[in-house]
């Protein structure tokens, strides 16, 4: 009997090891990197000198791509939310027997690599491609303008790549809604639009929260879309970090910037969850 008292703790061991190996150690390593002596180099080595000025320097040098990342990610998340909601709603309530097929289609892009998908957007949005041609024909775009290498292309890429992360949680929470609740709302004098606002939307809130987080967080840290679909003027913080790590070898600045990005995202997520409220998430 006495031996059983510690069984629970032993069962936690795999999870704890996993956390230590894939979260705690990398996190400490990153934190240490952000406090490196900036005078070091990849070859001569870096010492942890608690050089907190790295954070100030990184903010000072890279506040622009940092803000741009948050802005692009926010816009992309908003667009994903609108598109994803319509899509998830249609699949959950209107698609009938087609719903599983549509769900597979939502996930289908994952069958190809992220890189290939983004590269194919480059072809679609090409200056001589049919999208630009059509928009020019319709005079939405001027004859000399383009989509590639503009914020539109980068945000479109983010929306495309992260839409499934929005659709799936939204679908999961919409699909769970008892259809009789919507009938009940109608029975209780709520027009379809009021019924949506007062019943369907609040009940899908867990999906909205999960979807926006799953979209915003990776979008804010993404660098593939900006580097393939954007120009140097659309660089996001991910590109800067990647450059600092691989080309410049400035580990201290790269680490500081990564920690700053992480801190900003954690803070935003906490404020968001507190305002949106999770106590109702049944």
């Amino acid at each position: 009997m006495r031996r059983g008292r510690f069984t629970g703790y032993w069962l936690m061991l795999p999870a704890a090891l996993w956390l230590a190996l894939f979260f705690v150690i990398p996190f400490y390593s990153l934190l240490a990197t952000s406090l490196y002596d900036p005078e070091g180099s990849v070859l001569t080595g870096y010492d942890v000198t608690y050089h907190f000025a790295n954070f100030v320097d990184a903010l000072d040098d890279f506040w622009e791509p940092l803000l741009r990342s948050l802005w692009y990610a926010a816009v992309a998340t908003a667009i994903c939310l609108v598109l994803g909601y319509v899509l998830a709603y249609a699949i959950a309530f209107k698609a009938g027997r087609w719903s599983s097929l549509l769900l597979v289609l939502v996930i289908a892009p994952f069958f190809t690599s992220f890189l290939i998908r983004t590269l194919s957007w480059k072809l679609i949005l090409a200056d001589d491609g049919f999208v630009v041609d059509t928009l020019q024909f319709l005079h939405v775009l001027g004859d000399d303008s383009r989509l590639l290498a503009t914020p539109v292309a980068v945000i479109a890429g983010l929306v495309y790549n992260f839409l499934p992360f929005m659709v799936l949680p939204l679908y999961a929470s919409l699909e769970k809604i008892d259809g009789r609740l919507i009938e009940a709302a109608g029975d209780l004098y709520a027009s379809p639009s009021r019924g949506f606002l007062k019943v369907t939307l609040p009940l899908s809130k867990p999906g909205v929260i999960a979807g926006t987080l799953l979209t915003f967080i990776p979008a804010a840290g993404d660098y593939i879309n900006a580097s393939l679909l954007g120009s140097p003027n659309q660089r996001m913080v991910g590109n800067v970090i990647q450059n600092l790590f691989t080309s410049t070898g400035d580990y201290a600045a790269a680490g500081a910037l990564s920690v700053i990005l992480m801190a900003i995202i954690v803070a935003m997520v906490m404020v968001y969850i507190r305002t949106a409220g999770t106590e109702e998430l049944v």
């Binding site: 008892d178 009789r180 609740l181 009940a184 709302a185 019943v199 009940l203």
Partner: peptide, 9 residues
């Protein structure tokens, strides 16, 4: 309604 269909939120 059968099973009441109360709004859980």
């Amino acid at each position: 309604f059968q099973n009441y269909a109360l709004f859980p939120h």
